[in-house]
Design a protein around this nucleic acid. Sequence first.
DNA 1: CCTCTTCATGTAATCGATTACATTATACTC
DNA 2: GAGTATAATGTAATCGATTACATGAAGAGG
Lengths: 333, 333
Amino acid sequence: MTIKDVARAANVSVATVSRVINHLGNVDPETEKRVIETIERLNYFPNHSAKSLRTNSSNGIGIVISHDLDYFISFPYFVEFIHGMSAVLSDLDYHLVISTEKKGKTDSYLEIAAKGLADGLILFDVMDGDERIFALKKFGIPFVVIGRPNNVGTYEYVDTDNEKGGFIATEHLFEVGCKRILFINGPKGHAATRYRLSGYIRAHKEKGIEYDERLVRYVEKNSDRENGYILTQKALKDLSFDGIFVSGDFMATGAMAAIEEAGLRVGKDIPIVGFDDVPLSAMVNPSLTTVRQPINEVGKHAAMILIDMLNGKHVESKVLDVFLVRRNSTIRE
Amino acid sequence: MTIKDVARAANVSVATVSRVINHLGNVDPETEKRVIETIERLNYFPNHSAKSLRTNSSNGIGIVISHDLDYFISFPYFVEFIHGMSAVLSDLDYHLVISTEKKGKTDSYLEIAAKGLADGLILFDVMDGDERIFALKKFGIPFVVIGRPNNVGTYEYVDTDNEKGGFIATEHLFEVGCKRILFINGPKGHAATRYRLSGYIRAHKEKGIEYDERLVRYVEKNSDRENGYILTQKALKDLSFDGIFVSGDFMATGAMAAIEEAGLRVGKDIPIVGFDDVPLSAMVNPSLTTVRQPINEVGKHAAMILIDMLNGKHVESKVLDVFLVRRNSTIRE
DNA sequence: CCTCTTCATGTAATCGATTACATTATACTC
DNA sequence: GAGTATAATGTAATCGATTACATGAAGAGG
């Protein structure tokens, strides 16, 4: 079933069919109607490869996922992100192309665009100094970064306001009476880790409390429950603190477990604030006060910005607001 | 950068370059070396659309996600599933194409294949009697179904052993002394719902306990915490039971909350078994005994079967084993 | 009634790969 | 050394769309 078949069946030329499909005008309403009917009757869909080849554009947006599952797990909202993107993409007749970084190969992200499988890329696991950004710019491949990594030159991005997140989490802990707040942060080298620390420090400044570097701990790699547990246990031995801000809800549940195991009560003795607001956070006991990020919106904006770039429009990076979800882990009563 | 540029630069014809790229042999080792070097020097990647157009195959596997987020949320392992698929796909040089069901349109799943964007589809939200299956067969589009819906003719599928899951969950509850087990099942019309019920019934038969239909409740639509809570509360009024099997861990946390609110203790008074083993399940208090499904493997097998189909190989549907993860929600002590 | 637009439509080149077929060179058989 | 198989390579058609350009008809203006 090709455009020729449709043309024949509708008794017009392929050019006319193409004009109808692409709404280019200059077609007699009568003819147009006949063509549309024929298209539907024959169940014709224009061949994507042919169109793509001819127009030199694929209408695909590429995502490359790293080979190890780690990052996936530490990005609990991946599905929500994809869904946010999808809504925009399908409205504009784009689709998502997902490729996986092959073992041993490191340039799948380039390949997907160079091949013409995607017109642009979304990068969502970029570390400070990531050299992929330079490669993409060198090859002139449009892309949008989720987050704001350092030392990678300039680029368009969509991020949540991690600085504010760090600030309101810390501020809230001050509000419920904490004085020395343990901060279990994400891995070094991530933009979010840096921004959340800034927020944490700013909250100290505004409160007039001196910032004690020793209270900030970084997870080695994965922000999972296990590491939250271990780091908290260690901190309990090392130093004194009266509240915890944990940069990730899975980690936070680990911290909660360590606190309770030490005979302390989460909330009453040690208030805890998490980050992310994963479904889990409402369900644990006590439920977890946490910072919620509009991940769905991140996906939406990333898609919109990228598509605007592809259409040569002026685009602006975006930082989306976050807010505190108050639950029981910070109630003293 | 096209195959012509490479041919010119390597001083051969496009045919020879193509032979090298596709490992078709009949190329002088000397020439081959020169061509490979040229390809790498020029950073050439064959145009996907051209190849796809000519060979009439896209190397894409399609997934269409429904427009509402509901299903997504009730499929907590979506990411794991995608990741399982991805590993296989990238090894075999396939990629994933994700499209979203457009508002008002209902044939995105057909379109994606008819356009030639994907060579085959994975369907993972098929209800009993879903008419998409018939359409796909009519158009000769290869596909693999996740799950085993009824009344949709024959098809290839990958599923987890939900019958066994229902059985071992129920059996375990009998083992810890339950006699009347409330079963909060998923929505009617889903294959998993049916199979889990069969397992539940079989466990009764083997134990010699009469199966009481009134103990089985179905959630209306979403297997979420809210509905688990509501159904359990209602059951507490309606009937007597001494254990609960909940067809989904999110729902199970709702059930746990309702039980505790009623002044009963989960485990000691009312043991509860869930299904899915989402990350949450290990973190709630008490931790949830549940049935674990190898979702990653489901993704892997779905990809393998579909690709085998595309290559005209003989394929066999697959049912993957499940197992019980024993935690504290079924400890009496 | 002749010229000039404008509209509706068609013809054919084109995008970048694959591949059937042709061609040449080389090696092998007897 | 003639005949033939085999290897290495090239030429050109092809996939299915888009689109520049050509064409003819109809309407406008004088």
